[in-house]
Each structure stands twice: as structure tokens, then as C-alpha cells.
Simulated assay, not measured.
Amino acid sequence: MNDLELDRIDRAILSAVQADGRIPNARLAETVGLSETPCARRLKRLEQEGYIERYRAMLSREALGLGVVAFVYVRFAVHDRALADRFEREVLAIARILSCHNVSGSADYILQVVARDLDDYGTFMRDELRCLPGVTSVESSLSLREVKANGGLPVP
């Protein structure tokens, strides 16, 4: 994929479906200034070319009772590829870990974690996170207020 392949209308389509994945084709076509059939063809091409990976619903943390968001800095004492692979596989299976990034700097990984409350978070840390393969230390930063979430990717 090369963003030089995207024209103004492709970019407008990507922006619109990123904001509302369930936008009806008729409204999408009107928004981007096309008739419905060419708009549907372009959307299909953008999907097939991999610009759109998937569609999904954004759930409400509040409605689900997940009041705590934490960013967890995970460190390893031993940097072994097999150990890191095991850690990553286990992280993928834990639903309350929303994201995991292998990073440079003082931490090896940064995780975004949700929990019902601080007691739930403490139990998760003690019983699950600290027990993951390779983990020698963890440091948490709790979100006090979410300013921006899942803003979507910039469409150049």
C-alpha cells in the first residue's frame, strides 16, 4: 500500500468509515460526492487492498463497569526470545489487556489494562500479570481522565 495511490475521494471514504463503520452506502456516497455504485466499488477496493482491516463496535467501559484504566510498564531481567514469545502469547489471551507494545527505553513492554476498580486491578496484578513468563518488575500509571481515545488513524 502506498498512500500516493489514494486520491481525495479514497481518503474521504476512509475518514468516513473510520468515524462510522456502519454508515449506509447511500450516505457515504453523498458524503464523498459520488453516486452509490462507484462509492461501493471504491469501498470494496479499499477493503481488498488492506486499507480497511475490519469493522468493529466500540463498547462502553462505563456500561461494562470497567472504571480503571492503567498503563503498565513491564520489565524483564533476562532478554530471551523464547521467553518474550511466551509472554506475548499469554498476553494475547488476556481480554483485559487492551493493548501491548514492545518498546524501547526503560521498560520492555507497555500494556493498557482495564479493571472494575482498584481492588480488581490489584488482584489482576498479583495473580496474573506478575506471574507472566519473564516479568521481573511492573510499574503502573493509572489514568485519571481520558482525554482522547481511539481517535482513529490520520488519513493523509
Rank of each mutant, 00 (worst) to 15 (best):
E30Y: 00
T31Y: 08
G67N: 15
R27N: 10
E88M: 13
D85N: 11
A57T: 04
R45D: 07
R89Y: 06
S60P: 01
L83W: 01
Y55Q: 08
Y55W: 11
Y73L: 13
S35E: 15
L34C: 02
A70W: 01
G33W: 14
L64Q: 09
F71E: 02
E36C: 05
L92Q: 08
G21V: 08
R89A: 14
F76E: 00
E62Y: 03
G33D: 09
F87A: 00
D80H: 08
C39Q: 07
Y73S: 12
E62T: 13
A70M: 06
Q18D: 05
R75H: 05
V72P: 03
F76Y: 10
E47A: 10
R27A: 10
N25K: 14
P38F: 07
R41M: 12
L28Q: 01
D20C: 07
R61I: 03
F87V: 01
A19E: 15
S35C: 09
D20Q: 05
G33Y: 12
G50M: 01
R22N: 14
P38N: 08
V32C: 06
E62G: 04
T37P: 02
F76N: 03
G21S: 09
Y55K: 12
P24M: 05
A19L: 14
A93D: 13
F87R: 00
A93E: 15
A77H: 13
E90N: 06
A70E: 01
Q18G: 06
F71Q: 09
R54Y: 13
L46D: 00
V78D: 01
R89Q: 14
E30F: 00
V68D: 02
M58F: 07
T31E: 12
V17L: 08
I23W: 00
L59C: 03
F76V: 01
A26W: 04
A84V: 13
A70G: 03
L92K: 12
A57L: 02
E90V: 06
Y55G: 05
Y51A: 00
A57N: 09
A40W: 00
L92A: 08
R45Y: 04
E88N: 06
L43W: 01
A57E: 07
F71D: 00
V68F: 06
G21C: 09
D80F: 05
A84Y: 07
E88T: 12
A93L: 14
A70I: 02
D20A: 10
A29S: 11
R27K: 15
A29D: 08
A19G: 14
E88I: 12
E30T: 04
I52S: 01
F71I: 03
F71A: 05
L92G: 06
R81F: 10
V69H: 04
P38L: 09
H79Y: 05
I52T: 03
V17D: 04
R89W: 08
L34Q: 01
V74F: 00
V32Q: 04
V69W: 07
R81W: 09
